[in-house]
Simulated assay, not measured.
Amino acid sequence: MATASETKATRRDFLYVATGAVGAVGVAGVAWPLIDQLNPDASVLALASIRFDIAPIVEGSSVTILWRGLPVFIRHRTEAEIEEARAVPMADLKDPQRDEDRVVEGHDQWLIMIANCTHLGCVPVGEAGDFDGWFCPCHGSHYDTSGRIRRGPAPANLVVPPYEFISDTVVQIG
C-alpha cells in the first residue's frame, strides 16, 4: 500500500534557496563586466556610420573621404558616364553587375565605392585607365565608370558600401 508523505519546508530548505539566489546574483555580477567589455569602443561606434554633404561636389568630379579607416570614393557622374556604364554588355565584365545595382535608385549620378583595389588593396587613381574610370597603377587593374573591373588581375568590382540618402544633399554611409 502506498503512503503519501507530507513534506514540510524547513529552515535548511530556505537556506539552500537563499544561498543559490545569492550565488546566482554574484556570478551575474562578475560575468557582466566581462561580457560588457566585449562591446565595441565608443570611437569604433562613432565611425560605424558617417554623414557627408555632397552638395559641393560638382558634376564630373569626385572626392575621397574616410569611413571606418577606409578611403571611399564619392563620384558625381555625368550623364555620359552613366550611359557609358549602362551600355557595357554583361559578357564583357569579369564580375558581372549592372550599373543600376551599384547606385541608389533616383540618385544614379552618385557612385559611392570603397577605394581599395580588390586585387591587393591599393587605392586606384580616378579618371584614368582604359575605360575612363579608375586605374590601379600597382598591378594594372582597370575599372570602368561604374567601378566594375574590366581588365587586370583584380577579381571583383570595387565594393559598394551600405549607404542611403538622408536628403538630396546628405548621404549616410554605414
Rank of each mutant, 00 (worst) to 15 (best):
L111H: 10
M1D: 13
H107I: 00
L38K: 00
R148A: 03
I54H: 03
N157V: 02
A154N: 09
A9I: 15
E164A: 12
A42T: 08
E127K: 15
I173F: 05
T10M: 14
T10G: 12
Q97C: 13
A91V: 00
R148W: 01
G152D: 06
D130C: 08
E83M: 09
K94M: 10
D53I: 13
R86I: 14
L111R: 11
V44Q: 04
D99W: 03
S167M: 05
D36F: 04
D168V: 15
W67R: 00
T64E: 09
I50A: 09
P89H: 03
H139Q: 04
V159M: 02
V44C: 02
T169I: 12
V44L: 11
S141M: 12
C117E: 05
T3A: 05
H142T: 14
L38G: 05
R98A: 15
P56F: 01
L66S: 15
T19N: 11
T10Q: 14
F131E: 15
T7C: 06
N116W: 00
V160Y: 10
F135L: 11
A154F: 06
V30A: 15
V22Y: 06
E105P: 07
D99M: 08
V159A: 05
A24E: 01
I57K: 07
G147N: 11
E127D: 14
D99V: 10
G140E: 01
C117Y: 03
R68D: 10
D41P: 04
Y143P: 04
Q109V: 00
E100I: 15
V72T: 05
V160G: 04
G106F: 01
W32G: 10
G106Y: 03
F165Y: 07
Q97L: 07
E164T: 05
A24I: 08
S62Q: 10
P137G: 00
A28K: 11
V25R: 15
V63G: 02
D13E: 13
D130M: 08
I82K: 13
V160I: 09
I54K: 02
A154H: 12
P96Y: 06
I173S: 15
E81H: 11
I74M: 00
R98W: 09
D41M: 13
A42G: 08
